[in-house]
Design a protein around this nucleic acid. Sequence first.
RNA 1: GGUCCCGUCGUCCAACGGUUAGGACGCCAGGUUUUCAUCCUGGAAACGGGGGUUCAACUCCCCCCGGGAUCACCA
Length: 455
Amino acid sequence: MSNKTPTQYIAVRFPPSPTGELHIGNIRTMLFNYLFAKHNELTGGESDIYMRFEDTDKERSKKEFETVALEALEALGITFNHGPYRQSERGELYTKAIKTLIDTGHAYEAESSKDDPDSKVIRFKNPNKAVTFTDAIRGEISIDTTDFGDFVIARSLNNPLYHLTVVVDDIDMGITDIIRGEDHITSTPRQILLIEALGGKVPRYAHLPMIIGEDKKKLSKRHGAVTYQKFAELGYLPEAIINYLALLGWSGKDDREYYTTQELIEVFTLEGVNKSSAMFSYEKLDSINKHYINTLPKEELEAKINQYLPSRITLFVSNAPADVKDEIIHKVIKERINKWSDVQTICDTDLAWLENPMPIDKNKIVWKNSTIQDTKTHLNKIISLVEDVSVTDWQIENIKAVIWSYAEEQGKGAVLWPMRYSLTGAERSPDPFTVAYILGKDKTIERLESAKASL
RNA sequence: GGUCCCGUCGUCCAACGGUUAGGACGCCAGGUUUUCAUCCUGGAAACGGGGGUUCAACUCCCCCCGGGAUCACCA
């Protein structure tokens, strides 16, 4: 009596070309491969994930991009258990395959090579037939390969081209599922032709929808940040990038939006992938990133913000009492950022008043229907009220307490706006009590006095 | 242009023959002890068009239109 479920074996691959920093589209593709493989393990199957750099283009491939790609995957927590392989180091395999193809009449030497007149290119003898395959996302797709003609598979015996190397590697590694971008749909039939000629087993295919920019074209540099490195520089959290990317072209069975990688592994299936292209939204990414910032433990949040703080603010913060520092980081900065790089921006705008007094504009200090005379009176009153708060009692709640009833009596805007504006010289900033607290008693009175004098 | 893919709010996704077509981002309005931000509540906002099939179509079929991908000795 055995109720052992048959083990499902899956092998997928990450095949980036090290010709630039890792594109976000590549990362999404790798993520889906990863989730697919890991989900299979979770449901009792076995999976292998192969990492291989497709660097047959010697001109454009650079070692540094391999390093950068590996670092990105590590930062994102997308792992593999085989490789990294490098096609440039697997030449024998390809040469052998080319020879086999020629020997079996599936390929032949044709005209002279463009860049090497002494050698001849090798063309695949196209059987010119319609190839049909089943795409896990799109269903049956049928393409007549006659249009491809006898396509070139190698510049020479020792200089293979993309379609050949991909097929040889996929067969050699025993790849069972190829999950890649939609842009490869048209080239799938010719790869199937090659697989058949080499006697390999045709894998399952799944072609993911493209990620596009606002002009509906493939997402590229002109749309903004598109590589992991750029997103990392802007200060997005890996979990936010993963979460957002997963949502681009995939959805679970409900309206859920936030997933950890582990949760994605649990619910990910190719059935959840949809067919149409997805426009990349930096705003939505921001919003998801903010959500993750809010879930960060206190220490981690502080460390990160500190890291991005301009040096002049760092100086101020490091000299300030711990609770003032808390106030600045948690109440002022954290609430106003979507990503770490926003910290600098916020410091330049909403926190500009922190170190030095800002110029006061007479036209801005008076609240709506209030008058200069009234404003002067209110500032005077605030100064006297605030002076009664001792330095040891200088807390947000206490400052508020002494001013509040007066503000309610005179009109909150008429009292509080001039107070806040006098302290910050800014149309936008935290509330006046917080600002006063952060500034300390002396500076608060000093600024109130000088604003009053300028009227 | 040939071939292939795709077509629900501005955007990302739901609804897989019967719903007042749902959620999120963004936007707008109101509220939360002045501003901004945060947060809360509410609102506007979509089935590309035309034929079928069916008692019933966003859902199935056909045509059109629109968008995209691909057509290298790049990957």
